[in-house]
Write a protein that binds this DNA or RNA. Structure first.
Length: 496
RNA sequence: GUCCCCUUCGUCUAGUGGCCUAGGACUCCGGGUUUUCAUCCCGGCAACAGGGGUUCGAGUCCCCUAGGGGACGCCA
């Protein structure tokens, strides 16, 4: 059987560097075996999923050069490739599981489940559903459902014994069934959870190898159970180590730029990023460090995947990017610069902002420097303001960052509404409030309009500049961070 | 707390029982090339988490301890 792999992002946020990491390895494995690489959109969380995120993820993966052979936009014979369009398939398999006793309907209320979890935690047990509804008579279960009572479908899990499975990277693993929860497979809104949808799709889409994050290792017993109960044999699983922050924790936007858009906007080359990502979990047999995805594909070997969680180190990525830049001939370089940002399409939105502020054409570049490239480095003195002291500035930047992190829309008007409301809530005049933000974002207090600038720069770049500003202002220790958090929570901000 | 995974220079890694006096890369330091800077070249600092075994021989195999990470949602 020919090799088929997939990457299955969920469109609940901006494109993440971890998604590219997983996509890279799955793509390379498939290509190295003459197989196919599939993109599947896991939009089963109705609350958080959005088409805008889906588009963003696909754009970013394409930018990275991680193209798929089958997917929602390019089709394929195993579609649809968007889980929200496959609900009937999941329902059918869920019913099959319930009918065969592999799963059961659960009518428990949220209140009961919360109380249960609390008492188990108090007793130092792994929180786990207690199986109350498992004892329901099938007829009774069916009747209650038919009467319109809300329910979920849960996986029936053995009370004792041990689950054994193999991981391609880590070998044989044993997990006691006691540790495995009776996972919800179908939510009360009728949508499947990840566990059901992924297993069903991986089987139906003929996926042969799953390379996914180590975070899923503990879910393997559930997945194996579903494969078994449906009469399927599971694909080979490889749990890759998670990318880490410098402090060793799972990579997160609080500590690192994690958005692919950040790297794109900051002028990293996709081929350098992929090369670097490859090094984060794999090595060339000859120890070569600079190689293309094609070269990696030609040499790929699953046995060379590493086990330890690598720290994502911007310094080495920057070095590597420089290697790629310098390897170009001048024509290529010019093309890449134009392709990146110095082109009509990218510059057009700036024209209305710049033209009215311009006397000579030479005025153009100094006005847009911080929008096209990095802003100048700032220090504490740049924030000095006649009505705001250092702590005020820190408070403004901190709260603005929190407010912006919670903002779903990212356009000029949304930014203005959110930040003006925040200034009001903080009791600071907008004019004063904006000053530290200008410094943080533009590197100076006189610049093009702030909200336009932020909209243009994008979320990831703005977040990283605000974080840098916070650091420059002396950083926030644990105590101060707590205080700022409380202070922010107590604001009567109509926008939150 | 319970369970699972992981552990070689600060960071990314090579190493699959003798080739290891542990190699490469980034960073840093020193030197050279260069009108400056950068590039480039040369050199240097720096690690097998600890303890027990197995073996003629252990970074490599086993066990224990410690440390780190992850999971424990009607999120993925």
């Amino acid at each position: 059987m020919s090799v088929r792999t997939r990457v299955a992002p969920s469109p609940t946020g901006d494109p993440h560097v971890g998604t590219a990491y997983m996509a890279l390895f799955n793509l390379v494995l498939a290509r190295s075996q003459g197989g196919r690489f599939v993109l599947r959109i896991e939009d089963t969380d109705q609350e958080r999923s959005s088409p805008a995120f889906e588009t963003g993820i696909m754009d970013a993966l394409r930018w990275a050069g991680l193209d798929w052979d089958e997917g929602p936009d390019v089709g394929g014979e195993f579609g649809p490739y968007r889980q929200s369009e496959r609900l009937a398939i999941y329902r059918q398999h869920a019913e099959e599981l319930v009918a065969s006793g592999g799963a059961f309907r659960c009518f428990c209320t949220k209140e009961r489940l919360d109380a249960l979890r609390r008492s188990q935690q108090a007793n130092r047990e792994t929180p786990r559903y207690d199986g109350l509804c498992r004892g329901l008579e099938p007829t009774q279960s069916r009747d209650r459902a038919a009467n319109g009572e809300a329910y979920v479908v849960r996986l029936d899990v053995p009370e004792s014994g041990t689950c054994r499975f193999a991981d391609g990277i880590r070998g044989d693993i044993e997990i006691p069934w006691r540790q495995v929860d009776m996972q919800v497979l179908v939510k009360s809104d009728g949508f499947p959870t990840y566990h059901l949808a992924a297993v069903v799709d991986d089987h139906l889409m003929g996926i042969t190898h799953i390379l996914r994050g180590e975070e899923w290792l503990n879910s393997m017993p559930k997945h194996q159970l579903i494969y078994d109960r449906l009469g399927w044999s599971p694909p080979a699983h490889y749990h890759l180590p998670l990318l880490r922050n410098p402090d060793g924790s799972k990579v997160s936007k609080r500590r690192n730029p994690t958005g692919l858009d950040y790297y794109r906007r900051s002028g990293y080359l996709p081929e350098a990023l992929c090369n670097y990502l490859a090094l984060m979990g794999w090595s060339m047999p000859d120890e070569g460090e600079i190689f293309s995805v094609e070269e990696m594909t030609a040499a790929f070997d699953l046995d060379r995947l590493s086990t330890g969680g690598p720290v994502f180190d911007l310094t080495k990525l920057a070095w590597m990017n420089g290697q790629y830049i310098r390897a170009m001939d001048p024509g290529q370089f010019m093309d890449r610069v134009a392709d990146w940002a110095v082109n009509r399409e990218n510059l057009t939105p700036l024209v209305p902002l710049v033209q009215e502020r311009t006397q000579r054409l030479a005025d153009l570049l100094p006005q847009v420097d911080y929008l096209l490239g990095d802003r100048t480095a700032v220090d504490e003195s740049d924030f000095v303001h006649k009505r705001l002291d250092r702590d005020d500035c820190k408070r403004v930047v901190d709260h603005a960052k929190r407010r912006l992190d919670g903002l779903t829309e990212w356009d000029r008007d949304s930014l203005r509404d959110a930040l003006v409301a925040l200034a009001d809530a903080m009791g600071i005049k907008v004019r004063d409030f904006l000053a530290p933000l200008f410094v943080a974002v533009a590197g100076r207090t006189v610049a093009l309009p702030l909200f336009d600038s932020m909209a243009y720069l994008g979320r990831d770049v703005v977040r990283s500049r605000l974080m840098d500003a916070l650091a420059v202002l002396g950083g926030t220790g644990k105590k101060q961070a707590k205080r700022l958090e409380r202070d922010y929570a107590n604001l009567t901000d109509p926008g939150t």
